[in-house]
Amino acid sequence: MNLAYRDVRHNLFRFVLTCLGLSLLMAVVLAMIGIYNGLVADALNIVRAPQVDLWVVESGTQGPFAEASQIPGTTRDAVARLHGVAETGSITYQTVEASNAGVPLRLYVIGYEPGHPGGPQTVTDGRGITQTHFELIADRQTGLAVGDRITLGRDSFAVVGLVDDVMNSGGDPAVFITLADAQVLQSQLAPPAQRVQAARGIGLAESGDTVAAVIARLDPNANVQQVAQTVRQWKHLGALTQGEQEGILIGSVVDRAKRQIGLFLGILLTVSAVVIALIIYTMTMEKLKQIATLKLIGAPDKTIVGLIVQQSLALGLVGWSFGLVLILLVKDVFPRRVVLEPVNAAALGGIIIVVCIFASGLGVRAALKVDPATAIGG
């Protein structure tokens, strides 16, 4: 006879209600894990999208994702002549506020050279960019559709294609335009400001041919470290391998978000442990007379301990199961991408088992201290 099962059946409504409450906590914990995974996935998607081996950036900077980087557009030709380099491309990144059907839209604009590395790998709807100017490929999360038009800066762009899951670490959906359009967009000023600059003679001799980085694919037999060292010998340039760029992104750009989410996870797990402990303690105190009766008829302590620990595990695991189902149902509604891997859910399940065992300690202690005479005393 399983005493925990019989006790749960006797108070089924309260047990289910308690599990639903715990499931909301578990859903929040899983959402936090999924949001962090999504943040990392989005950040790495951007840096991995060009599928290159080397990033040539401004000397003294950590690349276009961690800080500002500006180098001459002619750098691509110089890098292309290096031994071991197979393909090169110039690329720019900038965040732009636009409007779609009267709704403000924050976009991560990627400028690239068609026919060179840096553009979208797979266009899931529509086609790629074929014109030199005013065509755009958008991530589906922008809400744009093929054939729509959107104004960036002072120019109107036609949406010719859509891609999936291309966002930056801040959750802003990406759009791809030609490098020439991107350079115009990043140098455009409002007309009054432009007139002031022209009157002061500022910028008249400056070239607008600057890019955030030059990216390079190497020959299969080329040594990426040797090529990077060659680039670093040019005093005005720095070079980062793909692995180094990804490491900077994870260790610098998303590090604070990672620590913040980790703190929230710790707090939520602590709250879960306290809630489970209080619930089990309350349930134990309510049946002290029944526990005393069990002791009076000779039930061993392990039977009583098993009753309490099994109820604690049932609460935690049922709450975890409900929470997992809940977050899987609503994760697509979140404004940020939620990526929940099976290993994350399994790891949380293991943590919940440990938490439940420790949380049942308070109830076990109260049960073991019960005097069997309580059953007779009424």
Rank of each mutant, 00 (worst) to 15 (best):
L3I: 10
T18P: 01
T18G: 08
L20F: 14
G21K: 15
M26E: 09
M26D: 08
A27V: 03
M32P: 01
G38L: 02
L39C: 01
A41C: 01
Q51T: 04
Q51W: 05
D53Q: 00
L54I: 01
E58D: 05
S59Q: 15
Q62F: 10
Q62E: 13
F65D: 02
A66I: 15
E67L: 04
A68V: 03
A68Q: 09
P72V: 08
G73N: 07
R76N: 10
R81D: 10
V85K: 10
A86M: 11
S90E: 14
G102Q: 12
L107R: 01
L107W: 00
I110T: 06
G111H: 06
P114S: 07
T122H: 13
V123I: 13
V123K: 07
T124V: 13
D125Q: 07
G126K: 12
T130I: 13
Q131A: 13
T132D: 13
D148K: 05
R149F: 11
G153E: 14
R154P: 09
D155R: 11
F157S: 11
N168R: 02
G170F: 09
G170R: 09
D172Q: 06
V175M: 01
A180C: 01
D181F: 03
V184N: 08
A193L: 11
Q194K: 12
V196F: 12
A198K: 15
I202E: 12
S207K: 13
T210M: 11
R217A: 08
A222C: 04
N223V: 03
A228E: 00
A228Y: 06
R232E: 12
W234F: 01
K235F: 06
H236I: 03
A239M: 00
Q242G: 03
E246P: 04
G251D: 06
R256W: 05
K258N: 06
Q260G: 10
Q260C: 05
I267G: 06
T270C: 09
L278W: 11
I279S: 01
I279M: 06
T284L: 03
M285Q: 14
E286R: 09
K287W: 02
L288D: 07
T293D: 03
L294F: 15
K295A: 08
A299I: 01
V305Y: 04
I308Q: 08
V309T: 12
V309N: 12
G316C: 08
V318I: 10
V318D: 03
G319I: 11
W320T: 07
F322W: 13
F322G: 02
L324Q: 12
L326E: 14
R336P: 04
V338Y: 00
V338G: 05
L340D: 00
E341W: 02
A347R: 03
V355W: 11
C356T: 14
F358A: 08
S360E: 07
A367E: 02
A367R: 12
K369V: 03
D371L: 10
A373M: 09
I376F: 14
G377C: 07
